[in-house]
Design a protein around this nucleic acid. Structure first.
Lengths: 155, 155
DNA sequence: GTCGCTGCAAAGTCTTTGCAGAGAG
DNA sequence: CTCTCTGCAAAGACTTTGCAGCGAC
């Protein structure tokens, strides 16, 4: 039987932070206040954020930092490389980022209000593996999006 | 049981062309040689084309037209609006377009060579509908991508 | 003829990059 | 101290728009 659910965060912020620090140390990179704020903001947000939205949020909550948009982009790329965050590119332009340390899930995107709902279906996950196998394709990642109208926008 | 297959074109070019013409006429728009070439080129291509790639292909095959990139963009947008073509946005930047009049299918994208393989699985399609129903979500479209290494690039 | 379409170039977005100074280790 | 990171501004990549002439109907 298929199982569907909203996703819940499965990792503590402190754990995530330590992982991130360890990763940086391993590569001789530095842990800066900007990187911490970016990770923290992503962690605390339930939303899928665009770099621009993340930037604005950080400027609002940490106005003393004057964090530049370039740093946001650079940090997001670095985080994505390390699979700490995942990006979702869709429609028009731009990507949205979310923490990748959550359980894997797929997305339902409302074309009216842009809202994104997460879901998970074990059966689909299983079928994807089977298909790839048939094609001799080695899956590293996958994404599935359903586009349409959310409950609210149908009214 | 799941069914998997490569997708085959199910519509004749002439039929597609007539549909397109009818659509234009309905909206008081005009059928131009550029629009025909764009549709034809998309039809004859097995690939998923970026606007830039489409432009180059057209310039190569119809150098006498000097088709501008702006026209490509404008026409692709119009075609997408009318569901004649579908765009696929992924990874880095840019979209790729393909004829939407084929049977519906999903994509397997090689992260090494960028190659895109199409596939279809009826069971997954069915499950998607069920999930959306559960969330009160009205699906208008959907897309699924598996990212990884194609057979060739694994070697 | 009319009115939409086209090519060109300019203007917009979004993202990346160069650089000098700041700051982590 | 050293070497990475940051903010800023400039540069890039991709896409859209304004406009005058062209061409479909």
């Amino acid at each position: 039987m298929s199982q569907q659910s909203f996703t819940s965060r499965t990792i503590e912020y402190d754990t995530l932070l330590e992982e991130f620090k360890a990763l940086l140390k391993k590569n001789g990179e530095k842990f800066t206040i900007q990187r911490e704020i970016i990770l923290e903001t992503l962690y605390n947000s339930d939303e899928h954020l665009t770099p621009e939205a993340l930037h604005q949020l950080i400027q609002k909550e940490h106005p003393e930092l004057k964090t530049g948009i370039a740093t946001i982009y650079r940090t997001l790329s670095r985080l994505e490389e390390s699979d700490i965050v995942t990006s979702l590119s869709f429609g028009a332009q731009g990507k949205k980022y979310e923490l990748g340390a959550k359980d894997h899930h797929d997305h339902m995107i409302c074309t009216e209000c842009g809202d994104i709902t997460e879901f998970l279906d074990d059966e689909i996950e299983r079928l994807q593996e089977l298909i790839a196998k048939d094609f001799g394709f080695k899956i590293k990642d996958h994404s599935m999006q359903l586009y349409g109208l959310c409950k609210t926008c149908q009214e």
